[in-house]
Design a protein around this nucleic acid. Structure first.
Length: 188
DNA sequence: AAGACGCCCAACCGCAGGATG
DNA sequence: ACATCCTGCGGTTGGGCGTCT
């Protein structure tokens, strides 16, 4: 018991929601140095985050080509098709949906499609025999993919971060366009 | 109008596989 | 051949937000 499990470095590791400052640091650093070697990237960039956390944030959220919300019926169909083929291989499925992340597809599946499958199974159980394929194809016509995306809210962090940033339409809501335009301003 | 409830999403955790020394 | 480190993946959870009663 002499040695404490938590040294000073461990104590400095941040967890929880990312602040806009952190986002900007990460975007800037990757714009200048490229991505990869996440642990040293996190240290070099001065982020008190694990490399894992930085990687996740970048891949799921900050990457310029990432798309969110509004899963189209075509995408939805493709997701179900690929899931029927590969199961929960989310990263594999995501590779066939440009701009979509495995995390998003996983969330989408769990929150929307899985729910409808359960309902379909309950319904089918009352009427006739069924299997996964049948219920999966059945829900393809019932799931409504019309979604709206809300940009990330930094409201909780704005009290500590008060940078000179624009607040055109949503005072406390920041879009990726905002972040990237800021990155361009900072980086160039 | 207030509280309860359910849904959705971002982020964390643990594990496995690959790369490197 | 082995040990260690890093990356990537899938599962799970907590908090915020909207809707319903």
């Amino acid at each position: 018991m002499d040695k404490k499990p938590c040294n000073s470095q461990d104590a400095e590791v941040r967890k929880g929601p990312w602040t806009m400052e952190e986002d900007l640091i990460l975007i800037n650093y990757i714009a200048n140095h490229g991505e990869g070697v996440w642990n040293s990237l996190a240290r070099s960039a001065g982020l008190k985050r694990t490399g894992k956390s930085c990687r996740l944030r970048w891949l799921n959220y900050l990457r310029p080509d990432v798309r969110r919300g509004n899963i189209t019926p075509e995408e939805q169909l493709l997701i179900m098709e690929l899931h029927a083929k590969w199961g929960n291989r989310w990263s594999k499925i995501a590779k066939h949906l440009p701009g979509r992340t495995d995390n998003e597809i996983k969330n989408y599946w769990r929150t929307r499609i899985q729910k409808h499958i359960k309902q379909a199974e309950t319904f089918a159980g009352q009427g006739s025999e069924h299997n996964d394929q049948a219920s999966t194809s059945q829900i393809s016509t019932t799931v409504n993919a019309a979604e709206t995306y809300s940009p990330p809210s930094y409201a909780g962090n704005m009290e500590t971060f008060q940078g000179p940033f624009p607040t055109e339409s949503n005072e406390n809501l920041w879009s990726m366009e905002d972040l990237w335009s800021m990155q361009l301003l900072n980086g160039d």
